[in-house]
Write a protein that binds this DNA or RNA. Structure first.
Lengths: 204, 204
DNA sequence: AAAAGTAAACTACTTAGTGTACTTTAATTA
DNA sequence: TAATTAAAGTACACTAAGTAGTTTACTTTT
C-alpha cells in the first residue's frame, strides 16, 4: 500500500531531521550516531543502512541545508527604478537571509567543523563563494546603465555585503549579540546604502 | 642553581608551546592530553601538575595568545597630519594584525571551540569586542577637530574595519583564500579609506 | 629532605561501526 | 484475495579504539 509514503522514506526523513537538530546544537564531533538514532526513534543499524558513515551523513545534511537556504540571490536590474531603491531591496533580501535562524545555524555548524577539518565542508564553500554573484550582476547592469561608477564589481559587491554582515552576521555567529530588530536592520541598511552610493553613485 | 631557569618553569614553557601547537592545528576536542605531553616531551602527570584539567590548560593558552596578540590598538589622533594619511596608518596596523599567522591561528582556534561550547571562550570575546576602541577614540578626536563628520563613531569604526576584514580576515579564516600579498593589501586599504572618507570626510 | 618529574599501568567512560537473530512492511505470485 | 518472498527495520551484544584523569613506585632537581 502506497497510500502515504514508503516506510523507508519516512525513516530517512526522521534521520535527517534528527541529524540536523543534533548537528546544529552540538556540532559534528559532539554528536554521536547513537544519539541521532535515538532522537530519530530509529535503530542505529537503520541509520547506517541509509548513511554508511557519520561523515557521509554530515555531508548529506550540510548539502541539504545549503540547498534549502541558498536558493534566492537573484537581483535583476530595473532601469526604471532608482538605484537607491533597488539597493535597499537587495540589502533587505540579504539581511533577511543572514538573520534567519536556519542560515545562522547552518553557518555555525559548517564553521565549527570546517576549521577543524576543512576537507569535510569543502563543497559547501563553493555555494558560499557564489552567493554574491546576483549582486555582482546587478552592479554591472547599473554601471552599464550609467547609474553607478564601479571599476571592480566583485569588490564593490563584497564591500556592500561586508557593511551588512559586520552588524548582522559576525556578531551573531559568535553569540556576542542577538539578531538585530527590524528597526536596527533599517539603520544598518540605510548606512550601508549611503556609504555605497557615496562612493559609487553617479551624481546627476 | 638558578644559572638559567628553574626546571619547573622550563617544563611549563614546554607544555604551553606544545599545547599551543596542538590546539592550533587540531582544535580543543581533537587534541589529547597524552599528545600534548608527548609533544612537550614531558610526562602526562607533569602536565596535570601544572594544569589541573584540559579546559584549564586551554583557557590558559587562549588567554596567553590573546594577550600576546591584542596589545597594540592605540591610534592617537594627530591634528598636524591629514586624516587620510592617518587612516592609512590605522588600516596598515590593522591589516598587519589580521594577516599575521598568530592572529589567524588564534581566531581559528577560538572560533572552532566557541561555536561548540561558548562558555569555554567567553572571556576571550571581551578582548575581541574591545579591539576597535582605539579607532573609535581616533574618530571622535578627528570629528572634534572638524576633519570628519561622524554621528556614530562606533558604527563608523566597525564599518571601516569591516571593509578590511571582508578581504583580509574572513576568507582566510575559512581557508578559501590565502593571506593577501602586500600589493593586494594596499588595494584593500586604499578602497577602504576612499569609501570611509567619501562618506565621513569633510570637504574643505 | 622536600619538591618536582617520570613511566606505566589502570579506571571509567565514550564512540564508530559491525554482526546476528528476529520481526515488520510491502510487493509479487499463486 | 491469500500466501509467499524479499527488503527494510529492530534490539542488542560486540569489537576496537580513544580519552580524561588517577595511582603508584621510583628518580631527579633544588
Amino acid at each position: 500500500m502506497n497510500a502515504e509514503k514508503k516506510l523507508t522514506e519516512l525513516k530517512r526523513e526522521d534521520i535527517i531531521e534528527a541529524a540536523v537538530n543534533e548537528f546544529k546544537t552540538n556540532g559534528f564531533r559532539a554528536t554521536s550516531m547513537d544519539r541521532i538514532a535515538a532522537t530519530a526513534r530509529v535503530s542505529k543499524r537503520t541509520v547506517y543502512n541509509h548513511y554508511a558513515s557519520k561523515e557521509i551523513l554530515f555531508q548529506a545534511i550540510t548539502q541539504e541545508l545549503c540547498d534549502r537556504v541558498m536558493q534566492v540571490s537573484e537581483h535583476p536590474y530595473d532601469p526604471e527604478i532608482p538605484v537607491k531603491i533597488q539597493l535597499h531591496d537587495i540589502a533587505e533580501q540579504e539581511i533577511a537571509l543572514l538573520t534567519s535562524a536556519e542560515f545562522l545555524d547552518m553557518v555555525k555548524m559548517i564553521t565549527s567543523e570546517s576549521l577543524a577539518s576543512p576537507e569535510l565542508t569543502k563543497t559547501n564553500f563553493e555555494s558560499f563563494q557564489d552567493y554574491n554573484i546576483g549582486m555582482v550582476e546587478w552592479i554591472k547592469s547599473a554601471s552599464g546603465d550609467g547609474k553607478l561608477s564601479v571599476t571592480d564589481p566583485v569588490r564593490a559587491s563584497k564591500q556592500f555585503l561586508a557593511l551588512i554582515e559586520t552588524f548582522a552576521l559576525w556578531p551573531q555567529l559568535y553569540g556576542v549579540k542577538p539578531v538585530p530588530e527590524k528597526k536596527q536592520q533599517k539603520t544598518i541598511i540605510d548606512s550601508a546604502v549611503e556609504m555605497f552610493l557615496c562612493t559609487y553613485g553617479v551624481s546627476k
